[in-house]
């Protein structure tokens, strides 16, 4: 008897009776074919069971990783969708950058800010209009020796980056060296904070508060005679990849800056819900 058939208990039982020769041959062949199909299906089922077990174990491992983050042994699948995620500077800044790059002229952006700040004269006019001293607006050739990048979040400074001879040091707005928080650049703890740090931060905050983006880089040259505004970059090619703690910290600033950015259209009534003939007014009064 077929080896496969022998493994099937109900086939063994049937083999006790002996059918007529011609019928039995035909029947046995069909049974054998069926049994082989069953055997094949069962082998596939066993393989699938093994695969399923591995996948369930992998799923549980991932659920454990997520659970540990919220102090639980495991995070249920339903709970995953209830999480709010965490703020991220890099993720937020790139998201808005991608949105603005959908403009017909990507560098210009949807609000035209890129076009304004590509033009040094218009940049000067802008800075001038917000009360920056004429001395910082003097047109000079950008220095390659030293530069300060103020990472500004619509009215608030998050980080000050000072570059010197290929090395970098980052400071908080109060002038404290925040350490080696950026793996992509060479950290130099000997680089001092810029002499006019508080003024740079105040000017950068002022300028960024009047730009319709949540995050901009305000670039300064630290000249001997005092700082000089080099440029305002609303579409930076390079955005710092920071340690998780600092990405989160600046992510919080980004979230708030995003809300502040929307205050301009909000106060103009441009975000109001529309209805035929005008804007919607809730009658709830509650």
């Amino acid at each position: 008897m077929n080896a496969v058939l022998r493994r099937l208990p109900w086939v063994r039982a049937r083999t006790v009776a002996t059918p007529p020769a011609s019928e039995s041959t035909d029947q046995a062949e069909r049974l054998a074919t069926a049994a082989e199909e069953i055997d094949s299906a069962q082998r596939e089922l066993e393989a699938l069971d093994a695969e399923r077990a591995e996948l369930i174990e992998e799923r549980r491992r991932l659920q454990r990783v997520l659970g540990e983050r919220v102090g639980k042994r495991i995070m249920s699948l339903a709970k995953v969708e209830k999480t709010n995620g965490t703020p991220s500077f890099l993720a937020g800044a790139r998201l808005l950058q991608r949105v603005h790059r959908r403009a017909d002229e990507p560098g210009r952006g949807l609000d035209g800010a890129g076009a304004i700040f590509e033009d040094r004269a218009r940049t000067k006019t802008f800075a001038h209009s917000h009360g920056l001293p004429a001395s910082v607006l003097t047109a000079v050739a950008p220095s390659s020796e030293a530069a300060v990048v103020v990472h500004a979040f619509h009215g608030e400074v998050g980080l000050v980056e000072v570059r010197h001879r290929g090395r970098t040091c980052h400071f908080d707005p109060a002038g404290a060296d925040v350490g080696d928080i950026r793996s992509t650049v060479a950290y130099d703890p000997e680089i001092p904070p810029p002499p006019a740090l508080s003024a740079l931060c105040a000017w950068s905050a002022t300028l960024s508060a009047h730009i319709s983006r949540p995050y901009v880089q305000v670039l300064w040259d630290a000249e001997e005679g005092g700082p000089v505004l080099r440029a305002i970059d609303v579409d930076p090619a390079r955005i710092p990849a920071l340690t998780p703690e600092w990405d989160r910290r600046l992510g919080d600033l980004f979230d708030s800056a995003h809300a502040r950015m929307l205050l301009q259209p909000y106060r103009a009534g441009a975000l109001a819900n529309r209805v035929p003939g005008g804007t919607f007014t809730s009658e709830d009064g509650r």
Binding site: D111, T125, G131
Partner: peptide, 12 residues
């Protein structure tokens, strides 16, 4: 309703 906002200020 969304633009770079030029101020009125004089340079200090």
């Amino acid at each position: 309703a969304l633009h770079v906002d030029f101020g009125e200020g004089e340079p200090k």
